[in-house]
Design a protein around this nucleic acid. Structure first.
Lengths: 330, 330
DNA sequence: CTGTTAGCGCGTTCAC
DNA sequence: GTGAACGCGCTAACAG
């Protein structure tokens, strides 16, 4: 930058000001500076700037998987919202592991992000400690944590699944099956299962008929074997709800392959409204979640908190919408 | 850090050394320091460190879309490979636009990445200029650019599509259709189309039968309308190749919906070997590309170049594999 | 509108 | 094995 200043015959401070479009710099001076900048191919060093201004312009975001379009939609929402403010997303994926999350948080905190956006409400104690001593806005998304760290942008996975089941019950279905992942790695999956069981309980239907298959996140490949196992064990099952559209789609295709009529012989419903379910044959009944909106809102909330500073700040829970999308598979 | 040093009764320099597991720090001193660190909840400030050591530990990566599992697989490969070295990925998506790419590169260069990994070989002149004056390793992936900026890790999309067509021709197919995107936004798509046309030419088949549908990247939803248009226009088409599995899947499902037999009435082939094609009914013939490997190799190459410094450096083109996966849809 | 001074929080370099 | 001085490239705060 000193080079640029010399070339333009001004001080570095003026260059700094001109480059940030900030404050008062006269047009001729500004022009000289920009000419020098492009002649020298100069690019501002934001690392140095951050050190001085104590603002890094980073927002750290952790999602379980970058390959899951639900979560990458959220990441898109965040990026799109941050774009206009010049904030830069620092993205990591935890692979559904709290320990990975902890390591990533630690690494990211070294970069001094101005805000953190997490997925879900389950974290290691050390993660919670690091986050609160960082004293920056923390937003948990995609869930309604019982003890939020700070702010929340999400919805109740339990309620969403419950709504799906009651909607299906209203169509006359009685004997429900459920397919989810085996371990406790995916807390959103657990919530959904809870919602399933609660709905059956409230409706007075027989419980059970639950198949746990594969380590979450279970994907397309797990759907086929899971539904076959379920139908073998409980042949009179009328409808099967899946923890996500992905295994539901796998199940749907396996049924077609084996000439099992969907929804006549067995109906299938997913969760998440992935693109694949909207175009499969038959089209899949599912629960639509506002993935992109979660990202947008979370990012907007961070921005607001950053602008408000510490004053005027109150914790808040922002609820995002979900709705059942009834299609041909039920 | 000064706080920590005071607590431990040593100088900041010793703290710095201990925290980086570096060099000689006696065990008792080291222990005192770590105790102070955890008591104070201290986290190293890497921005300050970067300024001093002139190493940011950032690798900038640009992919066209974060929602496309082919590219997010590449991003995973990069992250996984970088992880052990402590390098941090700075990820952006261009939305298939060279202008977005330029803006993102400019923003990322301000963070002084130590290397850049791009998708494809088409960039604006200004992008190329910025990149070469940054004098850091630049890797172009997913393509074989005629004029590489620096290093390349990719494959010929043209050859890959050509291989698919010749494989299908060997099965006896003669009347080929093709579905791709409409504009020139997606250079990999263009290469594939070129490969399609060249193959037909070499085989002496009639050309034509090409439907351009939607703005790239075309997705599942475009597949149905596109294949219907194609079959209406050229009813005797025997097989249709798609620029990607996604529209191919959409077409497959539309055919099932309309009771058009696949592959008997018309065969369908995709590109990219997305998970959805491996479990659809019928399962989809496609071209498998080593998405994850591209990321791994690109990251490894960056790491190598960083370790080698400027000496001992030679530009290189690393070819990644592809193969036709024949399944039930052809 | 522009310049000067004084750090930001580390790592480098050299001394001890 | 440890410490002191200095500087990385920029910007905040104040002065002019």
């Amino acid at each position: 930058m000193a080079d640029v200043a010399r070339h333009a015959g001004v001080s570095t401070m003026t260059v700094s000001r001109a480059l940030k479009n900030e404050a008062q710099v006269s047009s001729p001076t500004r022009e000289k500076i920009f000419r020098a900048v492009s002649e020298l191919g100069y690019v501002l060093d934001q690392a140095a700037g951050s050190l001085s201004s104590r603002k890094t312009g980073f927002i750290a975001t952790l999602i379980p998987s970058i390959n899951n379009s639900n979560f990458s939609d959220t990441a898109r929402g965040i990026t799109d919202e941050l774009e206009r403010t010049g904030l830069q997303l620092l993205l990591g994926y935890t692979d559904y592991s709290e320990d990975n999350e902890e390591k990533l948080i630690e690494a990211m905190l070294r970069r001094r992000p101005e805000g953190v956006i997490l997925t879900g409400g389950v974290h290691t104690p050390h993660t919670r400690r690091m986050l609160s001593s960082a004293s920056i806005p923390v937003i948990e998304t995609w869930d309604l944590p019982p003890e939020p760290i700070d702010q929340v942008v999400g919805f109740s996975n339990e309620e969403a699944m419950r709504l799906l089941i009651t909607t299906l019950a209203a169509k006359g279905y009685r004997r429900f099956g459920y397919v989810g992942g085996r371990t406790t790695r995916d807390s959103r999956g657990e919530q959904r299962r809870k919602g399933f069981m609660r709905a059956l309980d409230e409706l007075g239907f027989v419980p059970g008929r639950i198949v746990s298959w594969g380590v979450p996140p279970i994907s397309i490949e797990h759907g086929g074997p899971a539904i076959m196992t379920l139908l073998e064990r409980w042949p009179d099952t009328e409808v099967v709800a899946f923890v996500s559209d992905l295994p539901a789609f796998g199940a749907l295709m396996e049924c077609k392959r084996r000439n099992i009529q969907v929804p006549e012989r067995v109906a299938i419903a997913g969760f998440g409204d992935y693109e694949v379910g909207g175009f499969s044959h038959p089209r899949m009944t599912t629960v639509n979640v506002d993935c992109y909106g979660i990202g947008k809102l979370a990012a907007r909330r961070v921005i607001e908190l950053l602008q408000a500073g510490s004053r005027n700040r109150h914790d808040e829970i922002i609820l995002t919408s979900f709705r059942v999308v009834e299609r041909e598979s039920t």
